[in-house]
Each structure stands twice: as C-alpha cells, then as structure tokens.
C-alpha cells in the first residue's frame, strides 16, 4: 500500500510542528525519517496513524483517507508509538491477544497469529511474564509484536530500536528489512547509521519542513562536491611538504592535522580527486607516503549541514 502525505499542516499553539509536508512512500519501500528533536517526525507519524487530526492537508494510505476512512486506515497500519507505551500490568501473551482481537483477527486465526509474532520477535521465553517485569529491550519487542500481529500492509515505527542491545538492534534491523520487502515501512530515528543500514530512502525534516529527500548516495553527492583526502607523509620537512601540497593545481585548502606525525588534510577544488597528484608528488620528492585515505562525506555531516541554520 502506498502512503501519500499531501500538504500536511499541524500547529501547536503558535509553533508550526509540521509545515506543509508532502511526500509519497511506495509499497516495498523503507523510508527513514530523520530530523533533530522537535522537527515534526512524531507529529507526522501520529497524523498518518490517525491519532492526531491535522489542521489541514490529508494522508492517504492505499485508497483510504485518514479523514474519511479512519477505521480502514487503522486496520492497514501497524504502529509502534514513541516511548513504546504498553499495558504494563498484562502478561505478554494476553496483551498481544487483546491487540489481535481489537484488530479483528478471528478466533480461529488468533493463536496462529500469536505464535507467529512471538516467534518473529523472539518472545517465546517471556510470553507468560508480565510486561512490567520485562527489560527495556523485550518491551520494545512486545511493542513491535503488537504492531505486526495483524500482518498490516503498512508499518509505522517511531524510533524502533531505542533501548535495544547491539545484537538486538541488528536483529530488529534485519527484521525491518525483511518486512520492508513486501510492505511499506516508515521509521524514524535519530541514529543515522541505523537509517543508513535499514532504509531505501531518507527524508530529513527540520522545523516541520522537508529539507532533503533521496537515497543515501544521492544525499551524499548533493551535500558536498569537494573531495577530501587524509594524507600522511614521512621523511620530509613538514613546512616543505605543506607548501608543495598547497601548490598542487587542484588543491583548495590544505590543513596540517598533526605536525609531529606529518598528517595533512587536503580539500580539492570541484569534484576531482587529488590522490594521483599527491602520489606523483611524493614520488618526485622521494617522500614516503604511508597513508592516503579518501574521506567520505558522512551522513552526520549532511545532517548537520541541513538541520542547522
């Protein structure tokens, strides 16, 4: 099911939480929602799940609109809210059964659905425990299990991996990727590596507006045209090396990162790489080149560039 968000606006008092956002997510796509705190990620997700009623604009999930067919939208969505609220006084299995029944799973199918989500989320050993007795990671799994129980076409996950240990994070990411092959998934996160690892597409929002939209590689090439090299050259006079590096045709800025160890950082002009030039220079001057590392523009930098003014 496709999700179409159309000119969504939501204000809290005078603050615009979501300011005229429009985007589309196709079936089989995992969309990562990135943004600093208070950017409007959660508000957008709450609007898609029909919990918050927007000031204007609309969201379509498949052919259903959140204003006209809220029931049908809710049935097609599996939602893991922020902070993962749960009925802590219930045992895991009773809770999942309750959610399953609410989602309209028939009595004959409910036990097979329960068995399947308990298996996928690795809750077999904990299923009879009270939710309040579980660790944060297991609670998170219960939250995920309740979102998956009715096998929804759309999954909305608000920070799905908070509180999980590294192994669990890998498991959950694999799970999301697996689910994402046939379903539409929107997940928000502030962990950039996570979004990079799980999502086909990234949407960065800031102050309620979309500031970037594309795959990781697209975002990278958009963000910076410069090529940066980290270089370590031994057996030469530091100032001499600095001067000669600066005199290279395409070198824009040369920094001495560490004078004692003679490390340099070279920014090139335009999109060209200086690696070959640096190597030729070292050969000519008879310097020993011990490191030549191209620096990739990190997602963090793109994020920082786009979300700070």
């Amino acid at each position: 099911m496709d999700i179409i968000v159309d000119k969504l606006v939501k204000t809290y008092g005078i603050q615009k939480a979501v300011d005229n956002i429009s985007f589309k997510v196709k079936t089989g796509e995992v969309l990562g929602f990135l943004g600093p705190n208070g950017a409007g990620k959660t508000t957008t997700m709450k609007a898609i799940t029909t919990f918050l009623i927007p000031d204007s604009g609309n969201v379509h999930v498949g052919s259903y609109s959140i204003t006209k067919n809220a029931e049908a939208v809710k049935r097609s969505i599996g939602y893991l809210p922020e902070n993962n609220p749960l009925y802590e006084d219930m045992p895991v299995i009773d809770y999942l059964k309750f959610v399953g029944e609410l989602q309209g799973i028939s009595q004959e199918n409910i036990y097979s659905s329960l068995a399947s989500v308990i298996d996928t989320c690795g809750l077999e050993a904990e299923k009879h425990k009270k939710i309040s007795e579980l660790s944060k990671g297991y609670k998170q799994r219960v939250g995920l299990a309740q979102a998956l129980i009715h096998n929804p076409d759309v999954l909305i996950l608000d920070e799905p991996t908070t509180g999980l240990d590294p192994n669990q994070i890998v498991e959950i990411r694999d799970l999301i990727r697996k689910i994402g092959q046939e379903k539409t998934v929107i997940l928000s996160s502030h962990i950039l590596a996570e979004v990079e690892a799980t999502c086909d597409r990234i949407l960065i929002i800031n102050n309620g507006k979309i500031v970037a939209d594309g795959t990781t590689s697209e975002l990278r090439s958009q963000a910076s045209g410069n090529n940066v090299l980290n270089v370590k050259i031994e057996s030469g006079e530091v100032n001499d090396i600095y001067e000669k590096l600066s005199n290279l045709d395409d070198a824009d800025v040369v920094d001495i990162v560490d004078a004692d160890k003679s490390r340099f950082q070279i920014d090139s002009k335009g999109g060209t790489s200086l690696a070959a030039d640096v190597f030729q220079l070292c050969v000519k001057e008879n310097w020993v080149l011990t490191e030549l590392i191209p620096v990739e523009t990190k997602l963090e930098d793109i994020f920082k560039e786009l979300t700070t003014e």
Partner: peptide, 14 residues
C-alpha cells in the same frame, strides 16, 4: 499518563 491511549485509539475502534 502512560501514553497507551495512543495505542488504543490507533486500533480500529472509535
């Protein structure tokens, strides 16, 4: 307080 109201109201109930 717990935020579970959000869970409940995003299920197909009025």
């Amino acid at each position: 307080r717990m935020g579970t109201i959000e869970l409940l109201l995003t299920k197909p109930v009025s």
